[in-house]
């Protein structure tokens, strides 16, 4: 059985093709989902891709959060559906309150685009199972509003519960609190991060192939759940 991974296109999404390609390279079946359609077409997992949904109007991800497809995704994510938010997708997950905190303007006010080293802090989520805790990976980072913020109590809680999934290495690129690049929900099925693993899945176009394990991890997770 092939794992079906939905990738949502919003008006202004940019990276849904790359995400679909990454899913395919990982041996799963990409399924195109549409922001205006409530149906998730029986997928086993969902990716919210990067880009500038709705022109980033109001706040990044704020309008996408109220789209028909997100209503279903929020409901299913609460019931355990694996959901990965990359960059703009991470912003949507925070706006939806599926993940705590928020993403704000980079502290230096510049758009940043570079290959970024990260440390895997939690290899026990639906999207990081095929990594090992402590792995160091390099994937592209490209955003203007990637500063992760939350109040001290929330940050302490995330640390105590092991819900910081990725941390920036080699210098904090955007002023994120505690160098946080990605977080997960308590159940570990919802993960969001600012860097782009889908751009690091083959030697021809990426700096590394370090991102591929995200997309193989979800298949591992889905299959394990089926046999459990």
């Amino acid at each position: 059985m092939t794992t079906r991974v939905g990738v949502v296109t919003f008006p202004g999404s940019l990276d849904e093709r790359d995400a679909q390609r990454a899913v395919k390279l990982a041996g799963a079946e990409p399924v195109a989902l549409w922001h205006g359609d409530k149906s998730l077409r029986q997928v086993d997992a969902v990716i919210l891709p990067g880009g500038f949904s709705y022109g980033d109007y109001l706040r990044c991800g704020a309008i996408a959060r109220f789209s028909p497809v997100m209503e279903t995704i929020i409901e299913e994510a609460r019931a355990g559906l694996p959901v990965l938010g990359i960059c703009n997708g991470f912003q949507m997950l925070c706006e939806s309150h599926l993940l705590p905190g928020a993403l704000t303007r980079n502290d230096h006010l510049h758009f940043i685009c570079r290959d970024q080293r990260l440390r895997v802090e939690n290899a026990d989520t639906a999207w990081t199972r095929d990594y090992a805790e402590g792995d160091e990976i390099t994937v592209p980072l490209k955003n203007g509003e990637g500063g992760y913020v939350a109040d001290e109590r929330t940050l302490d809680e995330l640390e105590a519960e092991g819900r910081v999934v990725f941390r920036y290495l080699g210098g904090n690129p955007n002023g994120s609190r505690r160098d946080i690049a990605g977080v997960t929900n308590a159940a570990g099925n919802v993960v969001g991060l600012m860097p782009h693993p889908e751009h690091a899945v083959e030697a021809l176009t990426g700096p590394t192939t370090d991102g591929l394990a995200f997309f193989t991890s979800v298949t591992t997770s889905v299959l394990r759940k089926l046999v459990a």
């Binding site: 704000t104 303007r105 502290d107 006010l109 500063g147 913020v149």
Partner: peptide, 14 residues
């Protein structure tokens, strides 16, 4: 308005 404890890099630049 951003809450007082949230860094406001745009305000600082101004």
């Amino acid at each position: 308005m951003l809450k007082p404890e949230i860094l406001d890099p745009q305000g600082q630049a101004v």
